[in-house]
């Protein structure tokens, strides 16, 4: 029976499975592509599928919280940095009302299909309110 951790580390064992969210593959990224200017730093990103794979690996080692974190991260791959910083700021102490957090949660859920992150925000809102 093959174990999920047999593929780890992915960069060594199965780099062919690794792509960027912009569609580039592991082997496309080399010094020449940097010099040609065909690559941008935003291409050097992890794909949600890869984060899910790492989440499963973490889970198989009994690390459910780390797996949850990686799955929230997978949802955030497509969320722009400005929005991420906005959500982070909103979660800091005394920055937002429960309603504001709720509306951010709605936005994450509807616009970015980030259901886990949305749930996490709602849990925060509830905790902040009590």
């Amino acid at each position: 029976m093959s174990n999920i951790t047999d593929n780890y580390p992915l960069s060594e064992k199965s780099p062919d499975r690794l792509t960027t969210p912009t569609g580039a593959s592991w082997n496309d990224i080399d010094l020449q592509s940097v010099l040609d200017g065909t690559l941008s730093i935003s291409d050097l990103r992890i794909a949600p599928e890869t984060l899910e794979l790492q989440a499963r690996i973490a889970e198989s080692a009994g690390r459910s919280q780390l797996a949850d974190n990686l799955r929230r991260a997978a949802e955030l791959v497509g969320v722009p940095e400005s929005k991420i910083l906005e959500v982070y700021q909103a979660l800091r102490p005394g920055r937002s009302t429960p309603a504001e957090l709720e509306s951010l949660a709605d936005e994450l859920e509807s616009q970015y299909r980030a259901g886990r992150c949305a749930r996490f925000l709602r849990e925060a809102a509830q905790a902040y309110a009590s």
Binding site: I46, R72, A73, R92, F120
Partner: peptide
């Protein structure tokens, strides 16, 4: 420290989302 456990946890996910 201007944070809560939730804000820090969210930040951790943000970093992870960029590998």
């Amino acid at each position: 420290g201007d944070d809560t456990p939730w804000s820090k946890a969210f930040l951790a996910s943000a970093y992870a989302s960029r590998g």
